[in-house]
Design a binder for these strands. Structure first.
Lengths: 156, 156
DNA sequence: GGTGAAAACTAGTCGGC
DNA sequence: GCCGACTAGTTTTCACC
């Protein structure tokens, strides 16, 4: 189960770009019958390699044009704190990513908001739920790249 | 085109979680006929609000278990440099996000690699393509949250 | 893995309200 | 803007090579 062959990788490469592709066109691209493709996809769904098929939306039209990264330093290392922090960030839909970083004292949050005022609302809402000693925010001026595609083709 | 009504938002909320949902079940959830749902989705695709439907994969099974954030300081503000930087990062599939941050001297890169050695390869490959004066890397120890779902339901 | 061919479901288009 | 019906296409599951 550890190894994924080249045909599977090419199927995944296609599906990552467009989940709505028909089995027929997929088969043509990878050089397999529709049926063989379907069996491989099913197997990869069952193994969990294929996690889900989702729809991506335009953040600007949703009035979420500002991406912000929040860097959080804490001196509270108790599991209670992490638990509360996890729960709080999970429940805030503007927060898209929460990462515990190396060093064990830094957390990074990736969030999308409308503007600075909206960020302040998010910040206030967060510190009302979890005690945070040190929070600094960096705002994204330009999104040069943003993708959900993972590198699946075998690298040299 | 500026406003999105509540039914559209509920459709988007469902599609963000599962793009493979049938029009029938979607209609049941939002209280509309399959046909009305279809027309709304089509309109949102045409307006660009719905960008694409993609497949999400398991990074761990693809041997991409390590997420790294690279913070880059540069003193080269020439448009040539940014152009080369953009082109280089665009062509590197391990790099999932590239952001120009506030201050105009910081760039942030979000990437997925197998391990530390793989990160070093990425780093070496990047600096071979673009001159980078100051690069620091932070590694993700724990992914507490990671989602592609944007907040579509109207906030209070 | 390939083929062919059913059954079930879905998308996309129509006229009508 | 919504609904029901219809058609055409697709997925999904067979049995068999």
């Amino acid at each position: 189960m550890g190894s994924i062959d080249d045909i599977d990788r090419r199927i995944l490469a296609e599906l990552q770009r467009d989940a709505g592709k028909s089995l027929e066109s997929l088969g043509e691209v990878v050089g397999l019958s529709r049926n063989a493709c379907w069996r491989r996809i099913k197997a990869m769904e069952d193994s969990g390699l294929i996690r889900s098929r989702v729809t991506l939306l335009d953040p600007v039209q949703l009035n979420l044009g500002l991406t912000v990264f929040m860097q959080i330093r804490t001196n509270a290392h108790a599991p209670d704190w992490l638990n509360a922090f996890s729960k709080a960030t999970m429940g805030m839909p503007e927060i898209l990513g929460v990462y515990r970083m190396t060093g064990d004292l830094d957390y990074l949050i990736r969030a999308r908001v409308a503007d600075m005022a909206d960020y302040d609302r998010l910040y206030q809402a967060l510190i009302r739920k979890v005690p945070l000693s040190d929070v600094s925010a960096s705002f994204v001026m330009e999104e040069i790249k943003e993708t959900t595609e993972l590198p699946v083709l075998r690298r040299i």
